[in-house]
Design a protein around this nucleic acid. Structure first.
Lengths: 221, 221
DNA sequence: CTCGTTTTGTTCTCGCGTTCACAAACTCCT
DNA sequence: AGGAGTTTGTGAACGCGAGAACAAAACGAG
């Protein structure tokens, strides 16, 4: 095994692991705030809601940041994960669609505290353009390109009605945005190289309903 | 292979498939509204953003609802999937935590249109109790048990700050709620038999940030 | 009625992710 | 210094899901 630079060490982290790293990061932050200096994989696994073997394997993809017989230094590990995910740097974000959900997103403190800075709120509806949400004034959707260019925005959030989402996505991609978080209830088609993650509130409820129905079937009270 | 009753046919649907059924359901609804009578697995797969082999395999778990050489009857398949998921029936839901996100959820039309009926909005903060959101008045959190009992609520939504979420979950479980959709940024621990699904906005952004960082590393402009 | 065309339902194979189990490594106590 | 106890990091086995490929079934033309 050859020595690797830190740039090379960021290779080949499985997708399933990437999805859990933010959970570990939050658990570590909680531990750190409660004054914990070191923790075992068992402790952290419990805080993150996974089993310890999976946690250790996940962390092993980042490198060997633990000490056998001791555990992990909470702050050190936290920094390493944050660096790996990329939340040590500042990510400018635009939110398009300032309805109920857009409001909630704009006000969500969890973004800013993790390195995401909402640089603009955009809406196609001119009657919203005099509004100020979370200290940011709502601007016309047509300002998208200028804002993206001036702020170096790489991540866009779509909180529009489903009917408008594909158009918004197309415009975002045309401006150079390469990661999209989509809250609209529709399937987006984007060119290769653009990442889309979908959050669909009603789908989550439907999955719960399915299981709920199963439970009722098995044991009819 | 013996003949199976419709109750028995609902066995053993893989979790990955369950998660996609709502997507197919929405795609079918869109097709139906555009006047389409029948569609091939290829058509539906494209509308749902998956490949056709996976779609056919998913549908095969429900039964044989297609016709070889022809395709699927849109409305018939839509009904079968809806029945399988359980959205042909009415699901009473309570939402706890009427902050920005709670407001957005209460107003979200996608719930009602898929069989989910918000029967109550609850908040621990007394200053919110005179508010009316989406035509429903906000009630004290302590009314939870009564509301759950009177309406037969099985599904609860948590939209509180992280610090309150575990308490809310405990109370929900104590009342008999057995499925929880959690928007709070924390890991909930619940007894076996209770389903929890987590939606975490900042985690989704962090996953995007990770990939975005990778792209920037590979091709530094 | 028969043959070609279309499309489903299913089998098979492969790769990823999870979990177990254990060797390696570190600390602490005597 | 040495041994007992603890905890990490990882090799190996296992199970699930994705995708390719094909047989079975339905339709239509002649």
């Amino acid at each position: 095994m050859t020595a690797r630079t830190s740039a090379e060490s960021t290779r080949d982290i499985p997708e399933a692991t990437v999805a859990r790293l933010p959970v570990y990061l939050r658990a570590l932050t909680t531990l750190s705030e409660s004054g914990t200096i070191t923790c075992s994989s068992e402790d952290l696994a419990q805080a993150a809601g996974v089993n310890s073997a999976k946690l250790r394997k996940d962390l092993s993809y980042l490198g060997s940041y633990g000490t056998r017989g001791v555990g992990y230094d909470v702050d050190y590990l936290r920094y390493q994960i944050a660096r790996e995910i990329g939340v040590t740097q500042d990510w400018p974000v635009v939110i398009v669609g300032i309805g109920n959900l857009g409001h909630a997103l704009a006000n969500y403190s969890g973004f800013r505290s993790r390195g995401f800075r909402v640089v603009a709120l955009l809406d196609a509806d001119p009657t919203r353009h005099d509004e100020v949400v979370a200290g940011i004034d709502v601007r016309p959707f047509d300002d998208l390109e200028q804002i993206v260019r001036e702020n170096g925005v790489a991540i866009g959030v779509i909180a529009t009605p489903a009917i408008a989402a594909q158009d918004v996505a197309d415009r975002m991609v045309a401006c150079g945005i390469s990661s999209i978080l989509n809250f609209a209830a529709t399937v987006l088609s984007v060119p290769a190289g653009v990442d889309v993650r979908k959050v669909d509130l009603s789908i989550e409820l439907q999955i719960l309903a399915y299981h709920e129905q199963r439970k009722a079937q098995v044991e009819p009270a």
